[in-house]
């Protein structure tokens, strides 16, 4: 990525690395936090409980101000440092949005494969191991599972086989996925989009680059639903605007609805 001297780099607030050699199976797990102190313990706990042994945990606090997410992350990392090959807590000097937070985490990650998760979500214990197995044995550039929605709504997600034609029309793949760091670099990371849909844009860049994620048909990731914040009208208007943004950024993909 082109360096941007004016963008403040993430600073390391806390880090512990084992002195042993980097394990071959090391998977980086990147947690991005913004004012989610109340969910942090559950999210990080679900990562510590993974059956996959070798983990590199990178927590990025995107300058939370409404709560003390950073202190909570550091405290948790100190307490559970022994579970991980390396644990790092990064912090942004000012709030930069989810795309930048994820990019900071990817840059810092030392695993070849990086799982990204927002701090309000959770994963079941077999999640990383199963995705890693699929990536390793299936030759994919990324891998994702079916989602369980929890919180204010209980249901199953819409994940399905990666199909560029269908995704170009509508996104059904959450970015809570294991992603090859080389793939992330090839598409130049996440792009900040003022109106949202950075996840969708990220997958469309995968399609543009000819990269292929794989779908693991098991329900191993949990997505927290927070009420319903926007009115239908607002959402629809934003939807139209975002459609246009996506069409402009990915003109070669078929027109969606």
């Amino acid at each position: 990525m082109m360096p941007k001297p004016w963008v403040p780099r993430a600073e390391i607030a806390f880090e512990v690395v084992k002195k042993t050699r980097k394990p071959a199976d090391l998977v980086s797990v990147c947690v991005t936090v913004f004012n989610y102190e109340r969910f942090l313990e559950d999210c990080l706990g679900s990562i510590a409980a993974q059956t996959h042994a070798d983990l590199d945990l990178v927590i990025v606090d995107d300058h939370s101000t409404a709560d003390d997410s950073l202190a909570a992350a550091v405290a948790w990392a100190k307490k559970h440092a022994r579970r991980f090959y390396r644990v790092s807590v990064l912090t942004h000097a000012r709030n930069q949005g989810p795309a930048a937070a994820r990019n900071s985490a990817f840059e810092h990650a030392i695993g070849e494969n990086v799982f990204i998760i927002d701090a309000d979500n959770e994963i079941y214990p077999r999640c990383i191991a199963r995705l890693y197995q699929a990536m390793r044995d299936g030759g994919f550039d990324a891998a994702y599972t079916q989602l369980e929605y929890f919180g204010d709504e209980k249901k199953i997600g819409s994940a399905d086989i990666w199909d560029p034609v269908v995704i170009a029309e509508e996104n059904y793949v959450d970015v809570m996925a294991l992603i090859k760091k080389s793939g992330w670099a090839q598409v130049e990371g996440f792009s900040h989009i003022e109106e949202g849909w950075e996840d969708y844009d990220f997958w469309l860049k995968f399609i543009d680059a000819g990269l292929t994620p794989g779908y693991v048909p098991e329900i191993l990731s949990r997505y927290r639903v927070h009420g319903t914040s926007r009115t239908r009208t607002d959402a629809h208007a934003a939807h139209e605007q975002l459609r246009a943004i996506m069409a402009y950024r990915h003109p070669r993909l078929p027109a969606g609805t």
């Binding site: 079941y124 929605y149 199953i156 399905d160 269908v166 191993l220």
Partner: peptide, 21 residues
């Protein structure tokens, strides 16, 4: 069914192709 039992099902080596398309 799946929303209610997701946690228990997650413990098994499974192949759950539950299709929404």
């Amino acid at each position: 069914f799946f929303a209610k039992n997701a946690r228990q099902l997650a413990a098994y080596e499974a192949f759950l192709y539950y299709r929404k398309v």
